[in-house]
């Protein structure tokens, strides 16, 4: 039953997001028909052409009818066509999605492994030298913009040391720099959040009990403290995936990866409104999917969430 409610609320979020993105596009200044005409012919459209475009895109209908039509089409996998290229958006998206998921997924994996490792290493010796160094490393990681890090990594490992290629995703080595450039900020965030929730957990009575019973610090951190913060960790990972997914815009541009990020960026650059709108909707899908997966994982590891108790 709670699962059904969860799914229903996800559908609600999606509907809301699609409506919001639809309103935003409708609020765009200027005449949509005019900008379509300009993109097509490169000149100001004649009244006849404008009327034809309005008819073609159904711009004369009431707002709610337009939204309803868009929604029904979207549910059938038809997201409309790009103004720029006139290629169906769904076709472009399915061709490019793999790249972006590979990029964001790999970056999340890198961020999670590094971040969790750093946080656990710090928690084993709280206040130790490693812990303090990690604090600053984490702060640096969340404070450096992804594009700046990408450029520095290219300079260092591709141009100076020549260990890795500058661009190209044909081989695994071509993915390493994009993954690190995209994932380091997540590593920093995950390390910082997990470290502070581990510190909270270490202050709980069950940890004190375990320590007083003679378990080693390592046993206590791994068997008591870490499992108790897993639900929070999953939530952070989910949010990070959403962040990474949108940050691919800049990383894809630098490494020449033809994914959704580039697609969205070019749409924003050239005011390709149907693509901008679809991107927003797709992001909502990713967001909802992410939160469903997180929810499922949380239920899996934590009986408190399963029972829906308020203390969870």
């Amino acid at each position: 039953m709670p699962l059904l409610r969860r799914l229903l609320s996800s559908v609600g979020v999606l509907l809301f997001a699609s409506f919001l993105s639809f309103i935003l596009i409708k609020l765009a200044p200027g005449d949509l028909a005019q900008s379509i005409a300009q993109l097509r012919t490169g000149a100001v459209g004649s009244p006849k052409l404008l009327a034809q475009i309005r008819l073609e895109y159904g711009l004369n209908d009431p707002f709610i009818v337009q939204y309803g039509r868009w929604l029904i089409d979207a549910l059938q996998g038809n997201l409309g066509r790009s103004i720029q290229t006139n290629i169906p958006i769904a076709q472009d998206v399915s061709a490019r999605a793999g790249m972006t998921f590979a990029l964001a997924g790999g970056a999340l994996l890198f961020g999670a492994v590094t971040g969790i490792g750093l946080a656990l290493a710090g928690a084993l010796r709280p206040g130790g030298t490693l812990d303090r160094i990690l604090r600053y490393v984490g702060l640096f990681a969340v404070s450096i913009p992804g594009f700046a890090l990408a450029l520095i990594l290219i300079l260092l490992f591709a141009l100076k040391l020549r260990w890795l290629p500058v661009t190209g995703t044909g081989t695994l080595s071509g993915w390493i720099l994009p993954w690190i450039a995209l994932g380091l900020a997540s590593a920093g965030t995950i390390a910082r959040v997990l470290r502070s929730s581990l510190a909270d957990a270490m202050n709980q009575t069950f940890v004190t009990t375990a320590l007083s019973r003679g378990y080693t610090m390592r046993q206590v951190v791994f068997r008591e403290a870490f499992p108790s913060v897993l639900t929070g960790l999953f939530a952070v990972l989910g949010v990070q995936f959403g962040q990474l997914f949108i940050s691919t815009v800049v990383i894809e541009a630098i490494f020449g990866i033809t994914g959704l990020g580039q697609y969205f960026f070019h749409a924003a650059q050239f005011r390709d409104l149907p693509v901008v709108q679809s991107s927003l909707f797709l992001f909502a899908l990713v967001f909802v999917g992410q939160s469903l997966i997180v929810d499922f994982l949380q239920r899996l590891v934590d009986p408190r969430v399963r029972r829906g108790s308020s203390t969870a």
């Binding site: 993105s21 596009i25 969205f264 924003a268 005011r271 901008v276 927003l280």
Partner: peptide, 8 residues
């Protein structure tokens, strides 16, 4: 990015 795409 979305808003800049809409507003120009």
């Amino acid at each position: 990015l979305t808003l800049l795409g809409i507003l120009g």
